[in-house]
Amino acid sequence: MAESEATPKQQFGIQKIYVKDVSFEAPLGATVFAKQWQPKVNVDMNTKNSKVNDENFEVVLTITVTATLDEQTALLIEVQQAGLFLAKGIEGESLRQALGIMAPNLLFPYIREAIDSLAIKGGFPAISLQPINFEALYRQAAQQATQQSVNEMSSESH
């Protein structure tokens, strides 16, 4: 048997990219446009993934942008950008990295455009999200999880 037949081929690719959920709120209504637009802007981000079947995974990147003026919410945009990804022959840490780094990197340009477009269509200035280093975030989360498990093990032994 040839070596290429014995070694399973690894594949990672996009099957489908889609918007899973969108929320746009401007709770102050038209009064917000009478105020000087110098908001305090907060951006929260989350990723999650779930197995659809043996080779396909859904990855959802959620970004929530909240702009406040005088301690009041002036603008709230939340977008869940999702993708269906084929992960064939990839397991363990390699699979976790593909779903936690590569997939969000592929989804980010879509969610960035959706948020920017929603802000403009709502009458607000464009929101240009800065690029995100998903690899650094993944490594940081992995390090925190390792540290937390070490802390839990040491507290159990006392």
Rank of each mutant, 00 (worst) to 15 (best):
G83D: 09
K9S: 09
P125V: 05
L107F: 11
V52D: 06
A2L: 15
E25Y: 03
M1K: 09
Q15F: 05
V79C: 06
E5I: 04
E113V: 12
E152H: 10
D54A: 13
S117P: 07
E91R: 13
V52G: 08
R112S: 07
Q97T: 13
A26T: 14
Q80S: 14
Q130S: 09
S117D: 11
A103D: 03
K40H: 13
R112Q: 01
I17P: 03
I77P: 03
A30R: 13
Q38P: 00
S154I: 15
E156R: 14
A136L: 12
E152I: 14
V43D: 08
K88Y: 05
G100M: 04
Q130L: 14
Q97L: 11
E71S: 14
T66E: 15
L118T: 05
T64M: 05
Q36I: 14
Q10H: 04
I111V: 02
A119I: 10
S4I: 08
E71K: 12
G89V: 06
Q147G: 08
A6E: 15
V65K: 03
G123C: 13
L99I: 03
L61A: 04
L61C: 04
N133I: 04
T47V: 09
I14L: 01
S155P: 08
T146S: 11
L76G: 03
F24C: 02
L95V: 05
D116Y: 15
G123E: 13
A103H: 03
A126H: 09
Q10L: 01
T62L: 09
Q15R: 15
T31F: 12
I101V: 15
V79W: 09
E58Y: 05
S4K: 12
L86P: 00
S155H: 15
L99T: 00
I63H: 07
K20S: 02
N105A: 04
Q140A: 13
E156V: 09
P125K: 02
P125W: 10
I111T: 06
R96K: 11
I14D: 03
P131V: 03
M45I: 11
I90F: 02
T31I: 06
P125R: 01
G13V: 04
D70M: 00
L95K: 09
K35D: 12
E71I: 08
E78S: 12
A141Q: 11
Q81H: 03
A136V: 11
N42Q: 15
L95M: 03
V150N: 14
L129F: 08
Q11K: 10
E71H: 07
Q15I: 14
E55T: 15
Q143R: 09
T7D: 05
F12I: 03
G29A: 06
S117W: 05
S128L: 15
A34C: 04
L107W: 10
Q10F: 00
V32T: 09
E156H: 12
G83A: 10
P125Q: 08
K48C: 06
R112A: 02
E156M: 13
K40T: 13
L95R: 08
D54K: 14
Q80A: 15
A126Y: 09
L118R: 06
L137V: 01
A82L: 04
S157P: 10
D116V: 10
A119G: 01
V60N: 02
P39D: 06
K16H: 02
S94W: 00
K51P: 07
F57M: 05
M153Q: 14
I14Q: 02
S50P: 00
N151L: 13
K9H: 09
A142N: 11
P109I: 10
